[in-house]
Design a protein around this nucleic acid. Structure first.
Length: 569
RNA sequence: UACCCCGUGGUGUAAUCGGUAACACAACAGGUUUUGGUCCUGUUAUUUCUGGUUCGAGUCCAGACGGGGUAACCA
């Protein structure tokens, strides 16, 4: 479907300005960067991308597009003990699926040699030293949030000695963790990031790109800003938790012979009700098998949402709607759902599908009768044409469309009441056949032969319209009904000692086995989107569908005014 | 307890050099409709509080209150 792989035009994001535009405008007006804008999206390849990343991607790539600039994809791969090629590949796939193409593809590891050189430079200029303190000692010397730290006894080590030790660290002469390279800044700074932060640690781990070439790796802080400088990034956009790192980011730029001066700007990360957006927690859900994997349709990962039936266009529209600010907020999940509905309403082909079937027999319709009835594929898109639906004496209708006792305002089926079968005739319920427990199992109805094409034989109005499938031609397919992964609006809000997973929604997945679908659905292509009329948006599952045997995932329900009225009563 | 950031309707964001609160979603009321969908119309805020500067403050200043972040050889 075309809306799955739209081009990255950036035009969608131009509708809403935010504070980062102001900052960039000010820089440009001040004559910085020769008027050029270059951003970057810098994921660590240690997990799959989620909705929160989608926001960052839209901001990073969107800003570059709006200013006619460029955006790089850079993998922040400075910790080989956590990072894997599998994630690198998945992240690239996800970014492209979302609809963006990077200008430059980089890895922090591309710059390991330059970064090492920067390390030696700081030593030579007296701004860094090799420290022999153990991790515990480093922590103890750092002090607390409200108390200054103490200087390391190795702080006065001569540049010559530190240089020699740093080279030997690289040569592999010391054990993992035995020494670190530290910046010499200010152990009493109120900002803990400035208390002689570690620049390099000894770590013997196989790196997915550099293999075993290195046994020392730079820390995030020592790598990120310098990579930005080396790539010519003008505006380094990140989330609020890095705000306190900005003084260090700038300190490195001030003390190193970098070729360019980037600027870090932070914005608030995305929070959405009824879900969690943290790689750590998502990983925990996968590991504890609460979900079936990173691409479980209930996961807020890009892969999960894609499999659930969310479109890239919907996600981009969502990111555009939520805005960008520095205030920590939580977006109502309804906004997300509304974004898919809006996109799918325009593009998804309609189909008739009965999830919980109740048999209807039209007693005045010929036993061997069969008609093919025209139905529009999408009223919002005339170009999508029409199809034909088989109609016969025996039909399936939705169990929920019948009630023994019609409540006030109910205009579906009940004894003696008449409804229109969508695209077909009006029927009246004459008799209800029941099982031993009294539950209805079959409705005996009559139809008005003059009621095709919206008319009735005597001009009477029939308000209710229900969907149906001819029993003779119905196909069956498993249909998965997904709901919020968490039952609580704010899943992470738990009392002390309570596991946030206690807020999981036990009914986040219901598999419907006996659904009856119109025959054309047999040929649904994996990944194809549909609107099952009056029910919701569904997608043929890309993993479990087989030729001629689709499996459907519910993306989102349709808005249901009746359900709302019923709930209120 | 220290430092930093933030505080506009139910929710999320707007408001050019301070000029008289806008948009989206939700909710509610109504209209259209062979999907109780879509679409259309209408209703909903003295901008956390208190002072100050000003002809004029959501925008500037001060204080209070509230929320968030930060003490990994993680990113």
């Amino acid at each position: 479907m075309s809306h799955d792989t739209p081009p990255s035009t950036g035009t969608e994001s131009t509708r809403h300005r935010h504070f980062i535009h102001d900052e960039i405008d000010a820089d440009l007006a001040a004559g910085k960067h020769q008027g050029r804008v270059r951003t970057r999206f810098p994921p660590e390849p240690n997990g799959y991308l989620h909705l929160g990343h989608a926001k960052a991607i839209c901001v990073d790539f969107g800003l570059a597009a709006e200013y006619g600039g460029q955006c790089n994809l850079r993998f922040d791969d400075t910790n080989p003990s956590k990072e894997e090629q599998e994630y690198v590949d998945a992240i690239q796939d996800d970014v492209r699926w979302l609809g963006f193409e990077w200008d430059g593809l980089f890895y922090a590891s591309d710059f390991f040699e330059e970064l090492y050189g920067y390390g030696e430079h700081l030593i030579r200029t007296g701004h860094a030293y090799v420290c022999d303190l153990t991790p515990d000692e480093v922590a103890a010397y750092r002090g607390r949030l409200d108390a200054p730290g103490r200087e390391s006894p190795y702080r006065q080590r001569s540049p010559a000695e530190s240089l020699d030790l740093f080279r030997r660290m690289r040569a592999g002469e010391f054990q993992d963790g035995a020494r670190t390279l530290r910046a010499k800044i200010d152990m009493s700074s109120p900002n803990p990031n400035l208390r002689d932060p570690v620049l390099y640690r000894i770590l013997r781990a196989h790196h997915h790109r550099t293999g075993d070439a290195w046994c020392i790796y730079p820390m995030y802080d020592f790598a990120h800003g310098q990579c930005d400088a080396l790539e010519g990034i003008t505006h380094s956009i990140c989330t609020l938790e890095f705000e306190i790192h900005r003084p260090l980011y700038e300190w490195f730029l001030d003390h190193l012979p970098v070729p360019h001066r980037p600027r870090q700007i932070e914005f608030a990360r995305l929070n959405v009700t009824y879900t969690v957006l943290s790689k750590r927690k998502l990983l925990e859900l996968v590991k504890t098998q609460v979900v079936e994997g990173w691409d479980d349709p209930r996961m807020p990962t890009l892969r999960g949402m894609r499999r659930r039936g969310y479109t890239a266009a919907a996600l981009r529209a969502f990111c555009d709607q939520i805005g960008v600010a520095r205030f920590n907020s939580t977006v109502d999940k309804l906004v997300l759902e509304n974004a898919v509905r809006d996109d799918l309403n325009k593009s998804a082909a309609r189909a008739l599908a009965v999830l919980r079937p109740l048999k209807v027999v039209i007693e005045n319709y010929p036993a061997d009768g069969l008609e093919w009835i025209d139905a529009v594929n999408n009223p919002e898109d005339p170009a999508s044409g029409t199809r034909r639906l088989p109609f016969g004496r025996e039909l399936w209708i939705e169990h929920d469309d019948y009630k023994d006792d019609a409540p006030k305002g109910w205009f579906r089926l009940s004894p003696g009441k008449e409804v229109r079968l969508r695209y077909a005739y009006c029927i009246t319920c004459k008799e209800v056949r029941r099982d031993a427990s009294g539950a209805p199992i079959e409705l005996v109805c009559t139809y008005d032969p003059q009621s095709a094409h919206g008319k009735t034989s005597d001009g009477r109005k029939v308000k209710g319209i229900i969907h149906w499938v001819a029993a003779s031609h119905a196909i069956e397919a498993p249909v998965r009904l997904y709901d919020h992964l968490f039952a609580a609006e704010f899943p992470e809000d738990v009392a002390e000692g309570v596991d946030w997973k206690a807020n999981l929604n036990p009914k986040s997945l219901e598999v419907v086995a006996g659904a009856k679908l119109e025959p054309a659905l047999r040929d649904a292509r994996p990944g194809q989107h549909f609107q099952f009329e009056r029910v919701g948006y569904f997608v043929a599952d890309t993993r479990d569908s087989r030729p001629g045997a689709p499996v459907f995932n519910r993306t989102v329900t349709l808005k249901d005014t009746w359900a709302k009225l019923e709930k209120r009563a």
